[in-house]
């Protein structure tokens, strides 16, 4: 295992993580393609993963990585289900535009 991370380096990683997260968020909010929206959520997962690993490295233990395993699990599950739903929605509406389904407001 390499040398544990310093706070200064940790801050860099956190900056990177935050930037990626916000880019993912903005992508989720602005893009109207359902698939890209889900892709953006994956990007947000990725940003969280970087923060996790960085914190784990700062503390010098493997818990951050273990958490990443769970994140991967959720991401995989989400991808499987969400993509199945996207395909079904596409079959139903012949479009991937998220606004097509805005009459589902409740």
């Amino acid at each position: 295992m390499t040398q544990p991370l310093s706070v200064l380096a940790l801050n860099h990683y956190l900056l990177l993580s935050g930037v990626l997260f916000v880019i993912g968020l903005i992508g989720f909010l602005t893009r109207r393609n359902l698939i890209i929206m889900f892709l953006c959520t994956e990007l947000m997962f990725q940003a969280a993963a970087i923060a996790m690993i960085a914190f784990g490295a700062y503390h010098g233990n493997a818990q951050g990585q273990v958490f990443l395993i769970f994140i991967l699990t959720i991401a995989a599950a989400e991808a499987a289900l969400a993509l199945a739903l996207v395909v079904m929605l596409y079959r139903r509406g012949s479009t991937l535009d998220a606004e097509t389904w805005s009459e589902l407001k409740g």
């Binding site: 968020l25 903005i26 909010l29 893009r31 109207r32 393609n33 479009t95 998220a98 606004e99």
Partner: peptide
């Protein structure tokens, strides 16, 4: 829907 972003200004500001 791919070509045009939706409410980019609000989303960017919030983000």
């Amino acid at each position: 829907y791919d070509a045009i972003a939706r409410e980019p200004i609000a989303a960017t500001i919030v983000g």
